[in-house]
Design a protein around this nucleic acid. Structure first.
Lengths: 335, 335
DNA sequence: GTGAAAGCGCTAACAT
DNA sequence: ATGTTAGCGCTTTCAC
């Protein structure tokens, strides 16, 4: 494999001149430039970015850490991130934390060891704070996406979870429901907390008491515990509607209901956060608070790159972008 | 940021000894080892993998190139790849080619310049051959996943597209359909060709003539041309069933039909390849040939790593793993 | 069991 | 407009 010296030798110049040609840094006579280009082609030369990054102290690489790339919400965030990164000549390394702060930490260590220029992260939970401190100590900029982290000051792009939850629950109330249960992610994640708060506020504004027992907390992931649904069904009185705090939870809820022979929405209304299936939906069924996932990715990436590219002078203070969800009413709420 | 010399100095040893500790290469007295470990902790030291990779000529990094990560099929392949890579201490860089050989080439150049140890690729089409030759010339091993590439000898993990298509179309024929149209990806991709062949064989085995005009060719991507469906509807006789060669095409077909006020399956039966929505399906609707996408990823990655890890001696000759699709009959075919 | 020297492939900084 | 020097942070090789 040819290196920069091989090219230099063949072109009859110094490695430095080749470097100048590669990097379009100018100050090279057109004639020499062409000679170098010819040599590069002849040797099938591809610059070694490891060496380049090592000396430049910059990798042109971002990391995106999400809980689970098979969740269509995060998939779409990832696409937004990648497209934006690419436009700005950055690469993206993708990591799945599985909602696990320990696994997340491993990936953050990796980010440091490969010297990424910045990180976009949908944090596993408040336990991520320590993980992020590692980035701080290496002065690697990062932006939080989808979820805030308690005690962390950083750029953040989130949806208005409180508002979305409020509207969803209000919709159920308007339909006449008063016994509304909720299944949410672990309350160590900001979205779980905010969605619960929105739920609570909607109830209270309509004079319906908030019952702790009707809020079930579990993992946001696909493998959520089936029995939680059963527990809700065994409550007295039995709820007539369930608010699921994300798409996977909603799917599990519906499966649980089916399992007990209950129909949606006839026997139980169901609403949730996040589109279940943003691209393939043939027959959208779920009433949802849909979030602009792609924009989560593009905006977060823009903020991050801005910070990376920012030269001397005072760095911009942490910015918070809040995007509004759109409530889409469909069959599952029995409107 | 501390480097290996800083640690060495603090521990009162040479950088070489620190290196030995980092890499668990043994031959270090337990006492010194602990001293080094303490120094590392104190300096918050994280080894620089760029430097390490540069000298070791190995990055422990794989690349996965897929047409579109928002397609749930590829998302699942990606998850299989990542999980397997991780288990074997490899990282994964993810790339979207958008079914475009030119964009694919850019990413392959990147693979070379960052010196990935291997590549897993769902190639854009037969035009990918030249792109893959670049990898060959740098002796970077790769394995093809989902799609073969004309004229390329390499490990390959595919589904039995011909068989799946055959069964899907046979199912339609068994239901009494004789006027069956097909919408497939560009015939420069092996899956499009094989699915068309399976379709054709099913027809011919049942004495139904194969009509070129009833096979519409377009991009596998989400933004497929709406008007193709309209063209099919304007044929005489009008087909009574449509076989879509992947999930996104099926969705577009159904949208097109809706647009013209046609119901599925009452007015038109629809079947397709690949699950539309492997995780979130609340009410599966489409009759599909479902492929074990996760295994595509895991197997491809295993083959690749085997090849990377393979020391001296003759490299294994190209292997071909063919996984069987499972036909799942649901409402959209009007069984 | 430990260290010194050399160098991976490139570019920043300073000549000329 | 081009070249020289030095060094990024690590590991390989060979010494002791």
């Amino acid at each position: 494999v040819a290196n920069i010296s091989d090219v230099a030798r063949l072109a009859g110049v110094s490695p430095m001149t080749v470097s100048r040609v590669i990097n379009h840094s100018g100050h090279v006579k057109e004639e020499t430039r062409l000679r170098v280009l010819r040599a590069m082609k002849e040797l099938n030369y591809v610059p070694n970015d490891l060496a380049r990054s090592l000396v430049r102290r910059r990798t042109d690489t971002l990391a995106l850490i999400v809980p689970d790339i098979t969740n269509p919400f995060f998939t779409t965030v990832a696409r937004g991130t990648e497209d934006t990164a690419r436009k700005n000549d950055f690469r993206v390394v993708l990591c799945n934390s599985d909602e696990d702060p320990a696994k997340e930490l491993e990936y953050i260590r990796m980010c440091v060891s490969i010297r990424v220029d910045g990180v976009i992260i949908a944090a596993a939970g408040d336990g991520s704070r320590k993980n992020l401190e590692l980035l701080d100590s290496f002065e690697i900029p990062y932006v939080l996406v989808d979820r805030k982290v308690d005690g962390v000051q950083a750029d953040v792009v989130t949806g208005d979870s409180r508002m979305g939850a409020f509207q969803l629950v209000k919709h159920l109330i308007d339909l006449g429901h008063r016994d509304i249960a909720m299944i949410t992610g672990f309350l160590t994640t900001s979205t779980a907390r905010e969605r619960r708060d929105g739920y609570r506020r909607a109830l209270e504004e309509h004079g319906i008491p908030f019952r702790e027992a009707w809020v079930k907390e579990t993992s946001y992931m696909r493998n959520m515990d089936f029995t939680l649904v059963e527990q809700l069904l065994d409550c007295t009185p039995r709820p007539t509607a369930i608010f699921a705090a994300n798409n996977f939870l909603a799917v599990q809820v519906i499966r649980g209901l089916r399992h007990r022979g209950l129909r949606v929405p006839e026997d139980m209304a169901v609403v949730c956060f996040d589109d279940v299936d943003p691209y393939s939906l043939v027959e959208p069924f779920l009433t949802v608070a849909s979030q602009p996932a792609y924009n989560f990715g593009t905006i977060a990436t823009q903020l991050l790159i801005e910070r990376i590219e920012h030269g001397e002078g005072p760095a911009p203070s942490p910015r918070s972008i809040v995007l509004q969800p759109e409530v889409i009413i469909r069959k599952s709420s029995g409107h």
